[in-house]
Computed example of a mutant assay.
Amino acid sequence: MNPQHLLTFAVVARLKSITLTAQHLNIGQPAVSGQLKLLQTFVGEPLYERKGHQIELTAAGQGLLRYADKMDSCFNQALEYVRNLQKISTGVLRIGATMTIASYYLPKFVVELQTNYEGVQVFMKTLDTAGTLENLYSLDLGFIEGSLHGVELPSNYQIIPWQKDEVVLVLPENHVLITQYTDFVPLEVFTQHQVIWRERSSGGRHVIESALSAAGITAPVNIEVTGVSAVKESVRAGLGIGFSSSLALKNEVKGLVSRRIGPGQGLTWQLNIIAPKPALQSRATKAFLALCMKESTL
């Protein structure tokens, strides 16, 4: 059975006219009559009869109409959904992002997207880089920290350089290092003071560990917490010094102070977006990418 023939049959039954159906569907009358004939041949018994200029359904036609009407209704709903997608007034955006990016970078873009396109639903998962790569096919966009050197993505995905950030030392406001180092702190402080370390999968931790390794410094790990908020609260409570994205401290007004780690530009890292190739992106994905890229620093 050809689904289009069934849809045409539903319109004919509603309008009771082949002429009006042809006008409604913007096709010729012979095309409508041909589709009805093929449908009737497939069924194997009459579905309608002509009474004057109108079409009247037989009992078999009335029975089939119940299903044709359901199909017609679903088709129109699907058509409306697609039209809304085309206007970005509906749809779902699935994002995977590291904890720092999800907490401090993306919220304003999500708010802007839903302000501009109220019907779009956004679901954001907090994942580390490995988790994002493992779940690519269930995400529309992935936001990750650090280098992807040596990582092979599926051919239908791309890496988009997005933001440049700095990993800074986090100190309680009365800590001795604040007066001892006014511009930047040397890497040696990681061996001289108790450090609040992020979880092993943290991109910020990888930056610190790489810098220490390059300098030939081995720092003990005695306290390990999950997330930037845990680092900040541990430092605020006086458990030690910590580190985080500079953006995570941007709105701190009391209790914490940051210092650059090392001279020059300090310890910088790159934030990247993993996205499907443009031809595979939904309109909601394209809209969100456009918002994010307006503030790209790379």
Rank of each mutant, 00 (worst) to 15 (best):
L177F: 09
K51A: 14
S73A: 13
V12Q: 01
H24D: 00
S246Q: 14
Q281S: 08
S296E: 13
Q23A: 01
Q86L: 15
N116S: 05
Q281F: 08
T129D: 02
Y48I: 04
T226M: 03
I95G: 04
Y181H: 14
M293K: 15
V168M: 10
A219S: 13
W269K: 06
F243R: 03
L6D: 03
R66L: 14
S103M: 09
S213I: 15
R198Q: 07
I95F: 08
L298R: 12
Q86M: 15
L177K: 07
Q35V: 00
V235H: 06
E188W: 12
S89P: 02
N222I: 06
I27Y: 00
N222Q: 14
G63V: 09
L291S: 12
L65E: 04
A230Q: 13
R66I: 14
M124Y: 09
S201W: 02
L15Y: 03
V92H: 10
A130G: 13
D69C: 13
A248Q: 04
P172C: 11
I261W: 04
A214P: 08
K232H: 10
A60C: 08
N135R: 11
M1N: 08
H53P: 01
F184A: 02
G63M: 08
Y181Q: 07
L65I: 14
G131D: 06
R236N: 11
A22R: 00
D128G: 12
A31T: 02
L113K: 01
I55T: 04
L177R: 06
E188R: 15
S213F: 15
V195Y: 09
S89I: 09
L249K: 09
T98H: 04
G44Y: 02
F123T: 05
W197G: 05
T297C: 11
G146S: 06
I55V: 15
L249P: 05
I178A: 07
V92P: 02
N174Q: 10
L127T: 00
P3V: 05
H175Y: 15
A279M: 12
L65Y: 10
G266T: 04
A59R: 11
E45G: 06
G96F: 06
F109Q: 10
K294E: 14
P276I: 12
I18W: 00
S210P: 04
A215V: 14
P263R: 12
T132E: 04
P161K: 09
T179Q: 12
C292W: 07
Y48F: 06
Q86R: 15
L36E: 02
P161Q: 07
R236H: 11
L289M: 11
L20K: 12
T191Y: 13
V110F: 10
V207Y: 10
L239N: 01
Q23Y: 00
